[in-house]
Nucleic acid binder design. Structure first.
Lengths: 199, 199
DNA sequence: TTATTTTTGTATCACTCACTACAAAATCCT
DNA sequence: AGGATTTTGTAGTGAGTGATACAAAAATAA
């Protein structure tokens, strides 16, 4: 019988749960940022020593990249639902920004981990990783928007990303959920008005 | 006759222009952020040695604070004009966001130095300084808005600050001036619609 | 058992960080 | 001139960074 463990490797078994550690690290990176979280902080929080850390994750940067992708999977916005085919673009954007307001509000770490990580950091490589993920998100959103309104896809995608950044920053500054929702609604109304009036 | 020099001090004269150095440092902090700019970077850029640096500015943090205030004075938005008494609030916000779009577009450093500095950094004290300046700006803007529409001052101030953050982030990501202006216009339209329709 | 493989803990590594001790140099005051 | 004061350049401080060398420990494979 093959055992439940996925990997029955050969050497000494790892004394900690890698996925659990990744989850913890993701939250910490989200809360403190790449520069604000040292490897010493991480190893202490995970209860492991540096060699175990590097054996498991390779480097701080590699772990950060994994954490970014985990964040997208576990806490990413439900773009498919908000921008489902057939939805009028204004309604879709309204829904998407509402999702963002709810997701970015402070429960533990605030704001969007990708957007906040994409701004200039001391380590330029970390910023590059976050920026790459952000660009991927923008491309995905744009793709979904094209289905709804091909003519305004670039503009709407830019506006959505800008609104995300504004909401994320406001959330980081302590704006409560309710207010964030109002802000998201006003921002969405702007695009609605622009699309209906100005063509 | 008293000489043109403001300070005819006693000891050995300073070999560099302090104001000039502050101006350079302000631009560098704006471009690279507090964490991304080391004292070694600064002393090299200014052509001075660390002791001269510390004698003139006290510490990296103190210089950063001076740089923030200098930025406000030299590159701050003309809030008084945009929100001059008698201006309808929607028109005032439209003007103010337009100013921001123009100011944040990339000519050398992009985005708003205060807003970008207010996000979490490795050194929490530097973030505190920037956040303090940002809060001061918010308070000033709110004060001006109160004159135009007292009922919606807090909401409008929050929305303006959020829009600033969004515009600043977009500028940092390379959005050209023209597009930033369009984004600012759409965002302003949102508040206009909200204020006229929803009360 | 014996060999092989992988992880573990201890104890660092070289490097960068913000910052300074110290004495020579350059100015003003008397 | 001679004393007082401030800045200068040289050199280096301790603390913190990300990342490792090394050998003992713990598992499987033969």
């Amino acid at each position: 019988m093959s055992d439940t463990k996925i990997t029955a490797k050969r050497g000494r078994p790892r004394a900690f749960d890698r996925d659990e550690a990744l989850a913890k690290a993701q939250v910490l990176f989200h809360a403190k940022g790449y520069d604000g979280l040292s490897v010493a902080d991480l190893t202490q929080a995970l209860g492991i020593n540096p060699p175990s850390f590097y054996a498991a994750f390779g480097s701080k940067l590699a772990l950060y990249d994994e954490a970014l992708r985990r964040y997208e999977k576990t806490e990413g916005l439900d773009v498919d639902t908000a921008l489902a085919p057939g939805t009028p673009l204004p309604a879709g954007v309204t829904k998407l920004l509402r999702y963002a307001a709810d997701a970015y509000a402070c429960d533990g770490p605030c704001g969007c981990m990708v957007i906040e990580g994409a701004r200039g950091t001391a380590d330029p490589e970390a910023g590059d990783r976050a920026r790459a993920r952000m660009e991927a998100s923008r491309a995905y959103i744009r793709e979904k928007i094209v289905v709804l309104d091909a003519n305004n896809a670039d503009l709407a995608a830019d506006y959505v990303m800008m609104s995300f950044a504004g909401l994320s920053a406001s959330a980081r500054n302590g704006m409560p959920t309710q207010r964030l929702r109002v802000m998201a609604g006003i921002a969405a109304e702007g695009l609605s008005a622009y699309l209906t009036s100005g063509r």
